[in-house]
């Protein structure tokens, strides 16, 4: 780990000023410390924001939604009564992420900023990776890419975003509130993560220099929602594919569907056409549900080793609808 100095800003304003001057914010630390060990990041200065007052609050919003302070620990978000009752998809996604002790450190804001788990990106030795060394190429494009993207990739980068909570938050139409040197702004969750561009890897997120996530705002409750995570191990493992769903039902009829897939692209992958096609269908008409989902997967572009992800993701989307229909307990 490269040497660095540690600042402890007393206010959010001071923190954004430090960040604008190049300091990296330190919250839970579960990602940042490993980036520094691997050389993915080598900041000269850290700004410890982990104890900034008030930024871990979880509070109702006037419009019926819920505000999650960015510094709220993952386990605290999942345990909150309003999340438990109103947002089971988020509670389940959190409980299927990482481990109990990591979730006591990791914050809901920092979780969204985790970087890809692509083994070439995380390698200790130097391997071609446009995200690590722009212009060096993408070793995964024709390499070991069984865990990589089937949507939204370019030849410059075929990695995926690994966050589970981000997938749930995408399905919930969450909004990320950020503070920065130029003031506060709101970023829809779906616009936070950037897909790779054609020339090289884009920045991971839409955050600008000095901007810090301060809260994540959820619209009104989505009690009929669920998260399905498919992985090679039952617990404590990243997803091969995941699916987050939120439905509004009228009896057994879908009035509104929201679906997002995880670990298939560099951002949570919403399925807007499928969501529109699902409206009006019966939960009991599996053939119609499957037909509504199918076109979304015709756009998939599997790599040399991850063709399995296309049917897996389609079936995960179908199954998460079934889980909601069965009232799957959080």
């Amino acid at each position: 780990m490269q040497p660095f100095t540690l600042a402890r800003p007393a206010s959010l304003e001071e923190a954004t000023r430090l960040a604008a001057a190049g300091a990296m914010p330190l919250a839970g630390g579960t990602e940042l410390l490993n980036w520094m060990r691997l050389g993915i990041a080598a900041p000269a200065r850290l700004a410890d924001i982990s104890r900034l007052p008030g930024l871990d609050a979880i509070a109702p919003l006037p419009d019926g939604g819920l505000s999650l302070g960015a510094l709220a620990r993952l386990n605290d978000v999942a345990a909150h009564p309003a999340v438990r009752a109103g947002y089971p998809v988020l509670r389940q996604a959190i409980h299927k992420a990482a481990s109990a002790q990591l979730r006591n450190l990791a914050t809901i804001g920092g979780n969204l900023l985790q970087k890809t788990r692509c083994a070439y990106f995380r390698a200790e030795e130097s391997l071609p990776c446009n995200r690590r060394a722009p212009g060096s190429g993408c070793a995964a494009l024709h390499g070991l890419n069984e865990r990589h993207a089937i949507f939204g990739w370019t030849e410059a980068c075929v990695a995926t975003q690994p966050s589970d909570p981000a997938v749930a938050l995408a399905a919930l139409d969450a909004v990320v509130v950020v503070a920065g040197p130029a003031g506060a702004r709101r970023i829809p969750l779906g616009d936070l993560h950037l897909l790779p561009d054609a020339a090289g890897a884009a920045a991971d997120t839409a955050l600008r220099a000095g901007e810090i996530i301060v809260a994540i705002e959820l619209p009104g409750p989505a009690p009929r929602s669920a998260y399905l995570k498919i992985r090679e191990r039952e617990s404590y493992e990243y997803a091969l594919v995941s699916a987050a769903g939120a439905l509004v039902l009228d009896g057994r009829t879908i009035r509104r569907a929201r679906l997002a897939l995880g670990s298939v692209a560099m951002k949570p992958w919403r399925l807007p056409a499928a969501e529109a096609a699902l409206a009006g269908l019966s939960l009991d008409d599996t053939a119609a549900l499957r037909a509504a989902l199918e076109p979304a997967f015709a756009e998939a572009r599997p790599l040399s080793h991850n063709g399995y992800k296309v049917p897996l993701a389609r079936n995960a989307a179908l199954r998460v609808i079934g889980m909601i229909a069965e009232g799957h307990a959080p």
């Binding site: 540690l6 402890r8 330190l26 839970g28 630390g29 579960t30 410390l33 490993n34 410890d48 982990s50 104890r51 109990a100 002790q101 990591l102 006591n104 450190l105």
Partner: peptide, 18 residues
Amino acid sequence: TVLLDGRRVNACLVLAAT
């Protein structure tokens, strides 16, 4: 794993100075 203010955490991911 240790308890930090009573909650379990990975001690390798926490900077002592914080």
